[in-house]
Nucleic acid binder design. Sequence first.
DNA 1: CGACTTTGACCGGCGC
DNA 2: GCGCCGGTCAAAGTCG
Length: 175
Amino acid sequence: MDNYDFSNLIFDFDEGGNNGLIEEETSSPTSIVSSETFTGESGGSGNAITTLSRKESTGSKGAETKEMGHRVAFRTRSKIDVMDDGYKWRKYGKKSVKNNTNKRNYYKCSSEGCMVKKRVERDGEDAAYVITTYEGVHNHESPSHVYFNDMVLSYDHGNWNQHSLRQSIQISPPP
DNA sequence: CGACTTTGACCGGCGC
DNA sequence: GCGCCGGTCAAAGTCG
């Protein structure tokens, strides 16, 4: 399992219906959950780039009733760009951001009816790190029946608590 | 032959 | 109003 190394997990949970529910003034909207329970990175997680300044429109204007769905950002250390999480992803775009010299890849679930989008970006400072951002939820079962981490996040007064984070990545695909 | 990847161009939103 | 940035689409090409 040297392919994936969960040194830093960044959960960027954005719900459109945050009607004043989560209104932290200083707390950044981006909750960083450093989970070292995975492989106990040996000094890997040295610098945590928590400055993910998201221009969240904290301004009043709700108008967030749009179907934003879920947005989760994983920052992992992997040798490969895309992590095979069991779903089939179709690349539909590649762009280079200014903040990052590397290119950003855009993936979309190949299954019909499943408009889940995935954004994979490589860290500019640490090429070993890959930032994968999932957007949306799957409407269908995984083609390979993969049980990813059973992570149940509970929002508790402005703090994300990992209620149940199992590190057992049980992948039982057909041989 | 089919599905998927690749790359450039286009469009929209936001900032100045 | 213009320019910049980010995101998406579509056509061609490639691989299995």
